[in-house]
Every structure is written in C-alpha cells, then in structure tokens.
C-alpha cells in the first residue's frame, strides 16, 4: 500500500488553488494530482512527499483531508499494461472503486487502484504483479 493524500473540496472557484497554495507554502512537492468532481464537491487525490504531514497541515488549515492507503502497481509502459491488470481484478472478483495512472519515464507506468477488501494487494503480488510498496518508489 502507498499513501494517497485525499482532500475534500467544495466545487467552488479558487478552492483547489487555495489547497495547492497551502501545500506549496509548506514545501510539499506533489508528483501527481487527480480530481474527481461532482456538481457540488470535488475529491482531490494526490501523491506527494510527506503525505502524513501534508494531511495534518491541511486539517489545521480547515480542510477535510486524510491519508488513504491505496494500491499501486508498476506495469510496462505499453499497450495492454492497464488492461491486463484490470482484467485480473475483474476475474478475481475484486471491485475497483476508483483508479488512475501515470507514466514513469518511457518504460513504466504506475496504476493506482482503490480496491474493496483487505487482501487485494497480496493477491496481486501473488499473481506476479509488481506491487509498489515503498512509499518513495512511485515518484521515481
């Protein structure tokens, strides 16, 4: 599991900017950010250095923020890298609540998944997937 910084924001102008400014001023460096938006709120999912400290910082500043453990899998940066992973999850009866991906250089990509249940990571590792466990590794 790796630590995702999660922030709940009102879907209003300037809220994302303000949250990012709070992190920036504290010297938190993000390596990825994705935003799930609905009509009246958004959920921001961030990878950064020092996620626990960043969450505490945001909470103190009045945000609803938390650290959420998610599964990260390193896959080859080629067609089918993600499809094979998701097909395995589907066939194994694992429900993916949300996910997103980003490339790491030319050779690899990291697929981040939130999967129901506690044993998903072990099952993926047992099936031969390259599960990222080191918190620093995803930024590489």
């Amino acid at each position: 599991m790796i630590s995702q910084l999660t922030v709940f924001l009102a879907n209003e102008r300037g809220r994302l900017a303000a949250a990012c400014r709070t992190l920036a001023d504290a010297g938190v460096n993000m390596s990825s950010l994705v935003l799930a938006d609905t009509a009246d709120f958004g959920v921001v999912r961030i990878f950064c250095d020092r996620p626990d400290e960043a969450a505490a910082l945001l909470v103190d500043a009045g945000y609803r923020a938390a650290v959420t453990p998610v599964i990260a899998v390193r896959v080859p940066n080629e067609p089918g890298g993600l499809a094979r992973l998701l097909e395995f999850c589907d066939e194994a009866g694992m429900n993916v609540e949300y996910g997103y991906c980003y490339s790491v250089g030319d050779d690899a990509a990291v697929d981040v998944l939130k999967i129901d249940g506690d044993d998903a990571e072990e099952r993926l590792a047992a099936a031969g997937f390259d599960v990222v466990r080191d918190e620093g590794a995803h930024a590489a």
């Binding site: 959920v43 609803r64 939130k114």
Partner: peptide, 16 residues
Amino acid sequence: VETVPEFPIDEVRKIE
C-alpha cells in the same frame, strides 16, 4: 453539513 473527520472522503460513491 460536514462529515466527521473519520468519515472516508476518498470515495465519491460513499459521499453520494
């Protein structure tokens, strides 16, 4: 309303 701090905010479905 606000959720309590313990409520998981990362899943849109749970909030909805």
